[in-house]
Design a binder for these strands. Structure first.
Lengths: 226, 226
DNA sequence: GAATTACTATGACAATTGTCATGTAAAAAA
DNA sequence: TTTTTTACATGACAATTGTCATAGTAATTC
């Protein structure tokens, strides 16, 4: 009955600090949703009034910029929480959250989170640390965007995808991003992204199998990304 | 005697949530430092074991990248706290903090902050919100870096400096950044930054008086930055 | 006050990256 | 299947941006 107890999110996220009683409370107030690939969990400007736990699948946090391009700020995977920042800031979402692969998410109302925050120091510290982690990553991404070439950022991002999401049985990257999405992650034009992938392919750093990408030379990619 | 009580940082930062007793505790454990322009408060990789309150002056958080350029991640002014992120993450500083103008800062040991965090829900919520604010700004900067041209970012940054730090009696920007530092904020080469400033000058969007910069046409700059 | 150093400025050129056009391949819909 | 749409790919060219060289100007040091 109490499904939250064994949920992966409970083991990986800030929620690991909750005690039995709190988990029961959580299980009673949460609501589960299934999100198909391409669909949105919430859109920029929406007031969510809670957070979403990612039970399964992959999502992207992105923002549509003035020139019509969708800039991807972060990918989220199972075990992570979504919408923490805007909930805490009492603001509408700054970013849209969409599914990159079919997702299962649970919604936890704000009142619950605030309650846990006020009564469980370990939970509030965990939550804080997870936001601090996001901040560090964001700052580091900023530096990479400002100082590195598109080629370096592409190499870096391919390694990141390989590292964090792993590979399928055929050795190709498990997360399937379109070239446009990949371009949106590294902050470049889709055509530039495609061109560089072709270059990497010719240099045998990667292999392009249809739309799939196989990482072939991690060392060389690492060197390129420096 | 109890200097923290009327300190600007106490009014502006997360510390505003502290009660009288806690402020006394703070006043007894803090240590004040004077940092001259150009000097460092802490360097990347250092373990600070506490946070710094900025009482007066302007500082920059930056990181030296592989190509030798110093990327400025954030400017800090009086009323802000420095080093919160790495303290909470239990990590050495990810960024260096240096004075852009002479500074007065107070050091607060980690033990005090953790104590406040665990015993004062309003303080922990404030601290969290301030980090959330940083995260939002960082994400938005990331999008600007990825999607906007150097010209747009320069316009944006000039407006930001004008907005946040104001102008001197002669109408020039109060914060005095070198062209190199300005370039480091917008993520470009110093020469490109200088060239664009000259362009803006010719277009009468700004006026260059020696090393000083006077913002002349806010509307036009805003339009440019879009 | 002369000399040294750091900062600002600009030209010339090259490299990177973006845009537009066009074609192909794959996937989805009819 | 055929059609339509969407995603991938590449050429050609232009615009942006970075690099190197050089020089002037302001600030600092001796």
């Amino acid at each position: 009955m109490n499904k939250c107890d064994q949920c992966i999110v409970r083991q990986l996220s800030s929620l690991k600090a909750l005690n039995k009683e709190e988990v029961v409370k959580l299980a009673n107030s949460k609501k589960t949703y299934t999100i198909k690939k391409g669909e949105a969990i919430f859109e920029e400007g929406e007031i969510t009034n809670g957070v979403f736990c990612v039970k399964d699948g992959v999502g992207k946090l992105s923002k549509l910029s003035a020139n019509g391009k969708d800039q991807i700020v972060k990918l989220v995977k199972s075990g992570e929480l979504l919408g923490q920042r805007s909930m805490i800031s009492n603001e509408p979402a700054n970013l849209s959250a969409k599914a990159v692969a079919d997702m299962e998410v649970c919604f936890i109302p704000k009142s619950e989170i605030i309650d846990f925050f006020n009564n469980n120091n370990q939970f509030s510290m965990n939550l804080m640390q997870s936001i601090c982690e996001d901040l560090k990553e964001s700052d580091n991404d900023k530096i990479a965007l400002a100082q590195k070439t598109v080629k370096q950022r592409l190499a870096e991002t391919l390694l990141y995808l390989h590292d964090v999401f792993g590979e399928d049985a055929d050795k190709s990257l498990r997360v399937h991003l379109t070239r446009e999405e990949l371009a949106g992650m590294i902050g470049t034009a889709t055509e530039s992204c495609i061109r560089l992938l072709s270059d990497f392919n010719k240099l045998e750093l990667i292999e392009l199998v249809g739309k799939k990408i196989v990482i072939k030379d991690i060392k060389a990619l690492k060197k390129l990304a420096e």
